[in-house]
Design a protein around this nucleic acid. Structure first.
Lengths: 191, 191
DNA sequence: GGGTACATGTAATCAGTTACATGATTTA
DNA sequence: TAAATCATGTAACTGATTACATGTACCC
């Protein structure tokens, strides 16, 4: 079975992990549980749940039951094999570096193509967005939750604070100074 | 033409932006230019270049020429329409929050399913990985580069430092203390 | 009993990734 | 001149996103 582990994506482990922690759950329940735990940093559109749960079922890592009541929704639980797969995953090292896809940062990289005012506007914009996000995280952190999920939230807070500081400090705002730290005199883009 | 902007992905803007900054370039040149600028935080497998450049050509945002020499490689340049599209993109706000896909963080979220030793091992592991990444960034920061690209690298450094501190501090190492900050007494996972 | 928000699911599309194949240049 | 590495490209696949369609519960 260890060989089959290679074929499981991170999304699969999210499903298995949530089910292992929360017990038998409907698809909608999964959606809710994901949203209130890893969902804030690991996006998981609900449509994907249907594809992945089906796949995990055929692999024997999930078992599927039909509700008796009127709506006859599917209820999933993790099988012993599934639980073992999560366990192994949690114990194996994670060499691949984290990826952060930040559109604001991407735009900044091309700042030399835009005017300094555009870069300044971007910085104000991003600072506001990160401040808002920080507010949301802080509110969320006030609620009761699993201690490990809380720990991930703590890193989220640190990331947001780092980003907020960056957009406020490292890039000047609307005050007309050059768009990068004063120590480097901003040469024109080569070619 | 503004209407067509909606159909451009971030990857498309990377290609357009690189070409706008660097002038006519072969596909391989694009690959190199991306790797040495936004590539470190915005992964871009080279196979995708062939699909995207073709698409951008049919949209009239790129023009394609064939080399005369023996190898007859394709050389792309950005058209005025393409340049205008990048310009508009750089000037429009970016509301979507940044996404950071961090497998280590995902595993941490499920820490309650694993033993405290597994969590401690994860933390050591991640601290080492981030320390290494930090070293690479710092070496890279010593080289000459566009000031805006340098600015993005600065945020990369701040992220990595935040992550390194987190895995070292917020999660204890191998010293046997409970797997989260001492202030919260780590209740058992519910159900 | 009509509207609104919540819940459940399918289908089509698109972007990203992996694997493969081969040609050109450099170096031992 | 053989091996190794760099360069160029295609094809197949998988995973993620979008759009749509409909059902159920609640609330006015």
């Amino acid at each position: 079975m260890s060989a089959a582990d290679a074929r499981l994506s991170p999304s699969d482990y999210v499903i298995l992990g949530i089910l292992a922690a929360a017990g038998p759950t409907t698809t909608y329940g999964l959606k809710r549980a994901i949203a209130s735990s890893v969902g804030y940093f690991w996006p998981f559109p609900h449509a994907q749940l249907y594809a992945e749960t089906a796949r995990l079922s055929t692999l024997g890592l999930l078992s599927e039951m039909q509700e008796d009541g009127g709506r006859r929704r599917r209820v999933y639980s993790v099988t012993p094999d599934g639980r073992a797969a999560v366990g192994r995953w949690l114990e194996t090292p994670t060499p691949e570096p984290a990826q952060f896809r930040d559109l604001g940062l991407l735009k900044l990289a091309f700042g030399s193509l835009a005017g300094p005012e555009a870069v300044a506007a971007l910085a104000r914009d991003q600072a506001a967005a990160h401040a808002e996000r920080l507010r949301v995280y802080e509110a969320y952190a006030g609620m009761p939750m699993d201690p490990h999920v809380r720990a991930t939230l703590e890193l989220g807070l640190r990331y947001e604070r780092a980003a907020l500081d960056f957009w406020r400090e490292a890039i000047p705002g609307a005050d007309g100074r050059p768009p990068v730290a004063r120590s480097s005199p901003a040469p024109r883009p080569r070619a």
